[in-house]
Amino acid sequence: MKMNGIMPLTTLDRAAKKMVGAVQEYALLSGRALGNLFRRPLYGADIITQADTIGVGSIPIVILTGFFTGGVLALQTSASLSQFGAAGMTGQLVSFSMIKELGPVLTSLMVSGRNASGMASELGSMMVTEQIDAMRALGTDPLKKLVMPRIVATIIMLFFLTIISDVVGISGGGAVAVLMLGQDSSQYFHTAYQALRYADLIQGLVKPIFFGFIIATIGCYYGMSTRGGTQGVGRSTTQAVVAASVFIIATDFIISRFMIGIFGR
């Protein structure tokens, strides 16, 4: 590439403008889709179809990742804790980590890999084959018919998937602690349960609501801004997963900081 001093600046300038434009468009899409939430028609059937593909389809991977995450947490924490003679606290640490952090974050990352990409490729192909334009031409608002049901379905489903992941993760940790590390099962589950406060549960259940919103809006945004044929669809799909994942982890940090500020734990 040829450089002549001024060019890097102008490309930087253009990149910055493009970025600001993208953020603006993303905010507009999210805002409009939410604004449609209570306006008729409601597209209940579309919400149910989406809930089915997002929720039911994700259950196996959520169970698998939840189980092994809980298991590995039990392995690692009990190894560290036994250095202080506190291996009996394994249950507490596993349940804390699962409910506050790993349950919501890992579930969201899994669902983002499956569904942010799915939404971006589905809406992207509709975009490049003019089906979105056809929908607008036939008098339907794609934000209402396509985006809004995906947002609602993802938020609801991610909430329940996170609960499943928490439960399976704590059980997986228990299985490892009891069967592999020879700990007492009632002690494990007792500490796992006893140490929990409402603040922890709230923190763990507020996160999937934000993450679900991020997954659906990012997936739809990249889908709806697809240009350039099938290659463009492939590009949007990967970009959607990457952006959603980074955004989820960054938001997780912000929510945690905020919640700890409120509840002090």
Partner: peptide, 16 residues
């Protein structure tokens, strides 16, 4: 949207 309901359009690539 209400106005478009009075217009029919056939896209170049059909867009079914």
């Amino acid at each position: 949207y209400p106005l478009r309901r009075r217009i029919g359009i056939v896209f170049q690539e059909s867009a079914l």
